[in-house]
Design a protein around this nucleic acid. Sequence first.
DNA 1: CGTTTTTCCGTAAACGTTTACGAGAACACA
DNA 2: TGTGTTCTCGTAAACGTTTACGGAAAAACG
Lengths: 341, 341
Amino acid sequence: MASSIHDLARHLNISIGTVSRALNGRADVNADTRQRVLEAAKQLNYAPNQSGRSLRQGATHSIAFMLQPHPGDQQYGEPFFIPFLTGLQGRLAESGLDLIVVMGAPGDYQQERLRRVVETRRADAVVLAWTRREDERIDYLTERGFPFATLGRSRSGGKSYPSLDLDFEKAGSDAVDRLVARGHRRIAAVRPALNLNFGYLFLDGYRKALKRHGIEVDPGLIADGFINEGGGYQVTPRVMLSKDRPTAIIYNNDAMALGGCKALAEMGIRPGHDIAVTVIVDTPLCRYFSPALTAFRPALQPMGRRLAEMLLASLPAFAGPEGTRIMREVWPLELIARESD
Amino acid sequence: MASSIHDLARHLNISIGTVSRALNGRADVNADTRQRVLEAAKQLNYAPNQSGRSLRQGATHSIAFMLQPHPGDQQYGEPFFIPFLTGLQGRLAESGLDLIVVMGAPGDYQQERLRRVVETRRADAVVLAWTRREDERIDYLTERGFPFATLGRSRSGGKSYPSLDLDFEKAGSDAVDRLVARGHRRIAAVRPALNLNFGYLFLDGYRKALKRHGIEVDPGLIADGFINEGGGYQVTPRVMLSKDRPTAIIYNNDAMALGGCKALAEMGIRPGHDIAVTVIVDTPLCRYFSPALTAFRPALQPMGRRLAEMLLASLPAFAGPEGTRIMREVWPLELIARESD
DNA sequence: CGTTTTTCCGTAAACGTTTACGAGAACACA
DNA sequence: TGTGTTCTCGTAAACGTTTACGGAAAAACG
């Protein structure tokens, strides 16, 4: 059905080798011949079969991003990633690479799907997100020597891969600084219960800042919950019922903050009036919520671009100068002051 | 590096043909041999090279979904699609197919990327969304005989492909009915300016319902704008400054509604008090906005599952009974009454 | 025991590319 | 004219699978 390089060769009365060389811009082909080949290719709208290409070259020319909805709130999903993916894909396309997003079922852990992608060689490299503190996937990939990059840090795998993360520690610290400056001293922290790495970073920043201000860290004001609305809803009363009620809460996730605000509302506590609410990692929901939530915003699209660059630099086929191989960057979050604190 | 079927064969001292047959569950292989092969495969963690497989079989075992962020609001993206994709991927996985999401740059039209996917045979079929009234992509695919299914209807391509759509006409009509029942007679409609098909369906329903209620359709109350916040913001004053000001607005898109509400706020008009606002196609943003927006909600995840089934039925390799080949379904939208009307 | 059937497996071709190798022709140079 | 160089192209192997075909051995049957 679809035209192959043989059709093209037959049509032009030359060998498939020459056709291939002409198409791939190799030097040892006559200018006229190349011209004729290019025209014929356009005319028969020939495009090289990707499977054949990959098989021969041992490279798929595509990068996989593993995407997986959180369990729980089905309606919500991951608006967070779209701008990131846009940046990622933009940069990859410039180097002739396709981005394929591999969807997983919500909830089931990515390990199996990742193995499939890697072992069936569906992609030349993968990009991981939601890195955990100890991350099985990272161990697997490093052990297997498969190229990858991560959005987020991890303790796993040493420093052998490019990674780009947000400065959750500084955000946690800044959030506390701001609240203290506004007179708060009882400040709660709510973070996801999975051992997602950013939860730890956030809490570190939170703790250090409190200490810096001479405020004792009260374990009763720290809570972990499911990383979705339900989690925030469930866990918020726990910190609010602490014997000395907090006057501020920092949520380490937008969905948890929204669920938390629902719980607060049911307790008759109004964010922005009776309590200060700050959320780390802004999403459009924070902006539109009422009251609009003060939040820390990442530059997702540039981050996507940058991580693509870092990944490319780590791939032999695209590698730049030796020194630029492995990179790790931590990007700031920008405070967007709104109404909730 | 990665183990091939040859390694496996050598390791077991049998031929690669037998290994392949054992792995693929063919009948003509001894039970013991199969067992040994399976074990060895697990042990050497062998997985068939996807490129080799595809090349030989002429099938990639993967379905592509073309995803493309809208231009404009970078922070927003497409939370709409995630639940849909979850359903789609779930059903496809059950038939051993992978879902790959092919990202495009925001703004640039999908046609080129689609050609790439099709002509390089990266997928066995594609799923299209954001169908337009006349859709170049659909023409291309039908002409080329490439299997596909669409989320949304179109005038293009006849009835030769499976499609699943939401009943925007009924939603538009229901929205009007509800507003009329609540005493409104000056009802505006705002929809996207691109010739996205659902915009037409919505407007049809809107017009018919008005006529049914004996209300004249006022062109001054109908406006098209960019399908993002900016579009809603820009276009809302136009209908509000109509000589006989509307008392209700129906937005055909959530982002446009949010932008519209911003414009209304700047004019000192409060949704839910001074004007009724309804939006067609609910998203989480509608729920969290203040006032919470009355909206029509789709069952995205089941729709994803269903469209996968319809697509599978249209693929020769998976086809069920002859009669079930081509299907077209229109699903209802559920009214979620909130505070804005 | 001879014949037929069944079971199981090896051989080799094919899918569509890319690329190392070599060879003929044209050219340059002395 | 002889020799070396440069251009250009064809040949064929290789990538990792699947599968049609045939054949040897085993089983079934008379």
